[in-house]
Amino acid sequence: MNPEPERKYLLITPARNEEDNLPDVSESVTGQKVTPALWIIVDDGSTDETPQILEELKAGYSWIQSIRLPPRPRDITFHYSYVCKQGFDYALEYCRKNGIEYDYIGLLDADTVLEENYFGKLMDEFEKDSSLGIVSGGVYYDVGGKLSREVSDKNLPRGTGRLWRKFCFLETEGYQVEPSPDSISNTKAILRGWHLRQYVDVVEIQKRKTSAGEGLWNGYVKNGWMAYYVDKNLSMVLFNTLYYSLKSPYYTGIAYLYGYLNSAVKKENKIKDMEIRAYYRGQNLGFLFSRISGVLSRSSTDAGQGEQ
């Protein structure tokens, strides 16, 4: 008989000027029914009260640590993944030096509040299905006191609140400094036979709209650039343009297409990882129709993200 799996996980959170959100986010993490074995919060050069909040958290909980990154030019392409990777690398080395065991690795943005048993529920799913490699809950927004889910593909975990099985994380080359690193991690996991899942009944409440950190227009221009960067084929680009255009606000589709076409005209660099490029070039009409069917089956009252 196999021994009972350990319910231990690491958690990484990038944070920059999050004094408004971090108190609620940290309360939701410290109040988890299963708390992390280690929580690393990466202070990306905050100029508000974030450093003081982190010092108070470290004083109150031995399993919370933070690192502060030196000033570095910010951009909406590689910077986020760079900050996160500093946290992952630090956490893995910290565990190695201090003999901390763990079975899962999580990523949580500093604007996301979790339900009380968020990670416990996700680990339950891992324990039921050994083929699961990456999971997350569903992202919701508090709209006038009611929760509204941001619809996206249930077979694709969200970026914030995601949890990797340790072996999947290592087998897929960890967390890479790339634009849209979560999509790249998803793709590598799929190509290695792992199953992915978003459990929409496991609730995470995001305080900012997805892709809104630099403004919605810039966020969706980045998504278009990312489509060009990974060599996504034109049929998928046009589908995503239409999909975004049907959302609110409508201009997100225009921003997405502009980002793609602007990159194509400039002949900007594409990702060097040929495995990723081959995957996105190979998304055929069957894949496209499955995406359309998925969109049509979703609730028309929810606002969606939908990009992979």
Rank of each mutant, 00 (worst) to 15 (best):
E55F: 12
E55N: 14
E56K: 14
L57P: 12
L57H: 09
L57V: 07
L57R: 14
K58R: 15
K58M: 14
K58A: 15
A59C: 11
S62V: 13
S62K: 14
I64Y: 03
Q65V: 08
I67S: 02
I67E: 03
R68L: 09
L69D: 06
P70E: 14
P71S: 12
P73Y: 09
P73M: 11
D75I: 06
T77L: 15
T77F: 15
Y80K: 15
S81Y: 06
S81R: 04
Y82C: 08
Y82W: 13
V83W: 09
C84N: 09
K85Y: 08
Q86T: 09
Q86Y: 10
Q86I: 03
G87F: 00
D89R: 05
A91P: 03
L92R: 01
C95F: 11
R96I: 06
R96T: 08
R96H: 10
K97F: 07
I100T: 12
I100N: 05
Y102L: 07
Y102M: 07
Y102F: 15
D103S: 13
Y104W: 11
Y104E: 02
G106L: 00
G106R: 00
G106H: 06
G106V: 01
L107E: 02
L108D: 00
L108P: 00
D109F: 05
D111W: 01
T112C: 11
V113L: 08
V113W: 02
V113Q: 02
L114Q: 02
E115F: 05
E115A: 06
E116T: 15
E116L: 11
E116Q: 13
E116R: 14
N117Y: 08
Y118F: 04
G120C: 08
G120Y: 13
K121E: 04
K121M: 04
M123D: 05
M123Y: 05
